[in-house]
């Protein structure tokens, strides 16, 4: 079975019984929706679970004595670009242009009003989750999961330097945004495009 998507909410005021929680837990499973009130704990969790598929709902205002949401966002982005982040704010209109530019340039998925109704915000979160499956790492994960658990840990790729990587290790490298991961990802994309170009007929059949 494919690994479940995790929804991580980093917000100091988000109630654990908020109706949005009820819907999220119903859709993604109780244990896959978690709230972190302190930004550092949230960051740590996300960075410790880079091999999972994660959507982060990140509040901008995390309390007077804590980091602001943009700093949390930057910290996550520094380590990986493969975590989807949705910015939440009760004062969306008062975000500065500098902050907004930062979010857009760094590919925040969306910015939502934390006071809006569930009907408004839930579809955006679902869209972010759906988008995950369109990414290389997630497509690769799906493909890896079609192999037997033993095969997944067998050496699959040998680099020029002699290092061997299993399928699971390749996936981890991509998720962690390492140099090898980035280079592999680029090659997979290029290869895919080239294969598509050569076998257009097959593409048309799907």
């Amino acid at each position: 079975m494919q690994n479940p998507v995790q929804i991580i909410i980093i917000d100091d005021n988000f109630r654990s019984n908020d109706p949005l929680m009820v819907d999220l837990q119903e859709k993604y499973g109780d244990s896959n929706v978690q709230i972190f009130r302190r930004p550092n704990e949230g960051i740590k969790y996300v960075l410790d679970h880079l091999s999972s598929k994660i959507v982060v709902l990140l509040d901008m205002d995390l309390g007077t004595s804590e980091k602001r949401g943009d700093a949390v966002f930057a910290e996550i982005q520094e380590k990986t670009l493969l975590v989807t982040v949705i910015i939440m704010s009760a004062k969306l209109q008062s975000l500065s242009n500098e902050e907004l530019r930062g979010f857009i340039n760094n590919h925040a998925f969306s910015a939502i009003d934390s006071n809006a109704s569930v009907k408004t915000n839930l579809p955006i979160i679902n869209k972010a989750v759906n988008q995950l499956s369109l990414r290389v790492d997630c497509a690769l994960e799906e493909w890896i999961l079609r192999h037997s658990p033993e095969d997944r840990d067998k050496p699959y790729l040998t680099l020029i330097g002699g290092e061997k990587y299993s399928l699971n290790q390749i996936l981890a490298e991509i998720r962690k945004n390492t140099e090898l991961g980035l280079s592999l990802q680029k090659k997979i994309l290029n290869l895919t495009v080239e294969l598509l170009a050569r076998q257009k007929e097959k593409l048309a059949e799907t």
């Binding site: 005021n13 109630r15 908020d18 109706p19 949005l20 009760a90 934390s114 006071n115 109704s117 569930v118």
Partner: peptide
């Protein structure tokens, strides 16, 4: 204003839960 808005947002979502 910020706090009132947050509370109203929470009440709104709970009321929405009943409606839905």
């Amino acid at each position: 204003a910020h706090a009132v808005r947050t509370t109203v947002g929470q009440i709104l979502r709970m009321a929405e839960f009943f409606v839905e």
